[in-house]
Design a protein around this nucleic acid. Structure first.
Length: 770
DNA sequence: CTTGAACCTATTTTT
DNA sequence: TAGGTTCAAG
């Protein structure tokens, strides 16, 4: 079996030890996916039927990738492996079994916006103080309750939780949880957590011995990114595998150091528990410690940094790729300067090291940071792509359209109903809706069923009757026609199309295009005949379409034909990816680590793991940067450099950038490393000295801004001597680019690294001096 | 019931 | 800053 030759010793062990419980601890870049996929391929080669294998991942992308790579070894059989995200696999099982626990099989899946909206309306209904009852906080509280298998009843009885809520001035949280649950149920809806929780409930109650069916079906279970599983997910996994006569063929793969979703209930406790739970059953542990991705400077920096965390599984990640390039640190005065300097460096790397755009990534802690980088990359004419932010399916117009589709499939879907009952405007306003809501709350029936039972004005009654008739016609279409026929009918008849057509603003046209794109997507769904996964029947109904998109995110939209762009994304989003050159920006206290994490050691530890993830994305070049000041919420804020910067080994750091001289000493602002042994972290507040205000560069160059009179951009020509406020005197070496976008390459004799800079004349202020 | 203007509030987020 | 929500007047 040739694929086994592509593995190192430990990897091969992890692949061929197929029976019994296995834990694979896999460092970054250690070939984790390869092990997982080859293990599955190996199982199939040795005679296991693909559909007897269950492989759980966290992202659609990971699942897709896995199937692809299995396919390369075993061929199209790979498609019949039950490989998918926790949510999608469980949803698939629930579609079949939901009625056993009182849900319709065509249940709606609520995304977190829907969940929040439910919570908002409950808060309103209960007349609670909005200042203390923040939907985000409440949802996360409910979510973690579910993830810990705490039902509303248990929550009510749990004094500790209740006390926490009282302390946070939201004593009625348990009541909200209860109502929320009831409301989802009467809407025939499951939120993301329910897809897990209801499956657990199903297995726990075990009607018709449904659990046995799945235990027998799945002979082998594999879990990717095990460190990101929560208690609930592990409980379900145990249901599948941990019982009397089980062979316990389970393999989990994970890295405790890369656990960055604790804020969503993930717990590395699961890894520790796993070892304990399967101790008696001959658990085998394999550690993948060789990093095939990065150079030693990068790997050792990562090792050093993560060493500051408490509690971790012992492992030594190493690389045989040689030292490579040192890690760069860029110090900037402002966020704007940071943006420019990063763009400068990207340009330089492209020139000097011949990197392509696609080999470069800028990673930040928060999505809001992308703006400045966008600005400068655009100026420099470097193609880039921003990931994250609002996804296609979260756009208002798309959600509106989808809400109609959802309603046509499941009229119990209250969130969809509320969303569109008066959009486009049809005279069913707040007052009417309030009256209906009151009745709904009394009867505890789906809102849809209450529409006819409310005392209302003639006008309102008429409007509602029209609306109901319309939705019923949609329902008929959804049942009788394929998804595209139904959807395009609904788009027209609902009035959405007319509403959008009427708006001729740029945004309006954009919205129209988005709805059309959605319809195109439906069409593609109907026409697409590729088999996505096992036993997928050619169900082209609207219901089937909705099931398909509910669990898709942004990344489903097909890749741009042009892939030559610099990647901009949050560190979270970068997990699992790799780039030749990585810029980790905004390395400042209160930003990275985030201010929300500063209160607890656990919080800091998680941020550090996040930093670890960021570092280990880089193959050859790693650049860190921070700014002394940046705009936040429209206000200038001063931040100290991130504590994590002090944890980067000095000897692996390259002192660079024009800023060096203005700092004076070797590592200005950082206290001597020896006084900080990593255990005294808690009281770090005063550790970083405040000497970060650089003298104004212009002043230090001896130029008085008053004497500086910049010339018009068009006057600048190659060969001229010019003066720049920041960089001082320089010589224009060449000029590229068209009239409006002329870029000058200028050599500044007094600037340090890089002395040669490309400057967009349109924006630059240069004075000709000769 | 609809509209516009003041008002408020901000992490990360595989699903 | 930017966006969403809320509130008071049409």
């Amino acid at each position: 079996m040739s694929y086994l030759d592509e593995l190192n010793d430990v990897q091969r062990q992890a692949v061929t030890n197929t029976d019994g419980p296995v834990l694979v601890v896999a460092g970054p870049g250690s070939g984790k996916t390869r092990v997982l996929t080859y293990r599955i391929a190996h199982l199939i080669e040795k005679g296991t039927a693909p559909w007897e294998i269950l492989a759980l991942t966290f992202t659609n992308k990971a699942a897709r990738e896995m199937k692809e790579r299995i396919g390369k070894v075993v061929g199209p059989r790979a498609n019949r492996v039950w490989a998918g995200t926790f949510h999608s696999i469980f949803a698939r099982i629930l579609r079949v079994e939901a009625e056993k626990i009182g849900y319709p099989s065509n249940f709606t899946i609520y995304d977190s916006d829907d969940s929040k909206s439910v919570i908002r309306s409950i808060i309103q209904e209960m007349n609670l103080n909005k200042d203390h009852y923040n939907p985000n906080a409440i949802l996360s509280r409910i979510s973690s309750a579910k993830s810990s298998l705490i039902t509303p009843k248990l929550y009510e009885k749990d004094e500790e939780l209740r006390e926490q809520d009282r302390m946070a001035k939201r004593p009625h949280l348990h009541a909200i949880y209860k109502k929320y649950t009831a409301r989802c149920k009467r809407s025939g809806a499951m939120d993301f957590d329910d897809l897990l929780y209801r499956l657990y409930e199903l297995f726990q109650k075990n009607p018709d011995n449904v659990l046995d069916k799945y235990r027998e079906k799945f002979k082998y279970v594999l879990v990717d990114e095990f460190q990101d599983t929560n208690h609930l997910q592990y409980s379900i996994i145990r249901k599948f595998i941990q019982y009397d006569k089980s062979d316990r063929n389970i393999c989990v793969v994970g890295d405790d150091a890369q656990s960055i979703y604790a804020f969503r209930g993930a717990t590395i406790q699961n890894i520790l528990d796993f070892e304990k739970d399967f101790e008696k059953h001959g658990i085998k542990v394999f550690k993948l410690e060789q990093n095939y991705r990065s150079t030693e400077h990068i790997v050792q920096t990562a090792n050093e940094v993560i060493g500051y965390n408490r509690r971790q599984i012992k492992k030594t990640i190493w690389s045989d790729k040689g030292d490579g390039h040192k890690i760069k640190l860029i110090k900037a005065m402002t966020d704007g300067e940071e943006g420019q300097r990063i763009a400068d460096n990207i340009l330089e790397q492209k020139n000097r090291h011949h990197l392509r755009n696609s080999e470069i990534a800028i990673l930040y802690r928060t999505n809001a940071q992308s703006r400045v980088f966008e600005e400068y990359l655009r100026r420099y004419n470097i193609a880039y792509k921003i990931f994250g932010g609002l996804s296609f399916y979260q756009r208002k117009e798309v959600k509106d359209m989808v809400a109609y589709l959802r309603l046509a499939v499941n009229t119990m879907d209250e969130e969809a109903l509320r969303r569109v009952i008066n959009y486009p405007k049809r005279g069913i306003g707040k007052t009417t809706l309030d009256k209906i809501s009151t009745v709904t709350a009394q009867l505890d029936k789906p809102l849809w069923e209450c529409l006819g039972r409310v005392q209302l004005s003639k006008r309102a009654l008429g409007a509602i009757a029209d609306f109901v008739a319309m939705i019923k016609s949609f329902q008929k279409k959804a049942e009788g026609e394929n998804a595209y026929e139904a959807a395009s009918y609904i788009a027209k008849r609902s009035g959405i199309m007319d509403e959008l057509k009427a708006d001729n603003s740029v945004e309006g046209i954009n919205r129209m295009e988005n709805v059309n794109a959605l319809l195109d997507g439906v069409k593609a769904f109907v026409e697409d005949d590729t088999v996505i996964d096992t036993e997928t029947i050619a169900d082209k109904s609207l219901a089937s379409y909705l099931q398909n998109i509910a669990l898709l995110t942004d990344l489903d939209t097909k890749e741009d034909e042009n892939t030559e762009y610099v990647t901009l994304m949050s560190v979270h989003a970068a997990k699992g990816l790799e780039f030749k050159s990585v810029f980790v920006v905004g390395m400042e206290e209160k930003l990275f680590p985030s201010f929300m994490s500063l209160e607890s050691q656990d919080g800091i530890d998680e941020e550090r793991r996040l930093f670890y993830v960021a570092i280990t994305r880089a193959e050859q070049f790693l650049t860190l940067s921070y700014a002394n000041s940046r705009y936040r919420y429209g206000q200038m804020r001063y931040n100290e450099p991130s504590r994590f910067l002090q944890e980067v080994p000095l000897e692996r750091l390259e002192e660079i950038s024009g800023a060096r001289s203005s700092f004076g000493s070797n590592r200005p602002g950082f206290m001597d490393r020896s006084t900080d042994n990593g255990n005294s972290n808690g009281s770090s507040g005063a550790r970083v000295s405040g000497n970060f205000k650089k003298p104004d560069r212009a002043v230090s160059l001896g130029i008085d801004p008053k004497d500086f009179k910049p010339n018009a951009p068009t006057e600048i020509q190659a060969g001229m001597k010019v003066l720049h406020l920041k960089f001082g005197e320089g010589k224009v070496l060449s000029i590229d680019g068209g009239s409006a976008n002329r870029i000058a390459t200028i050599f500044f004799k007094n600037a340090s690294d890089p002395q040669q800079r490309k400057i967009m004349l349109k924006f630059a202020k240069l004075q000709i001096i000769g």
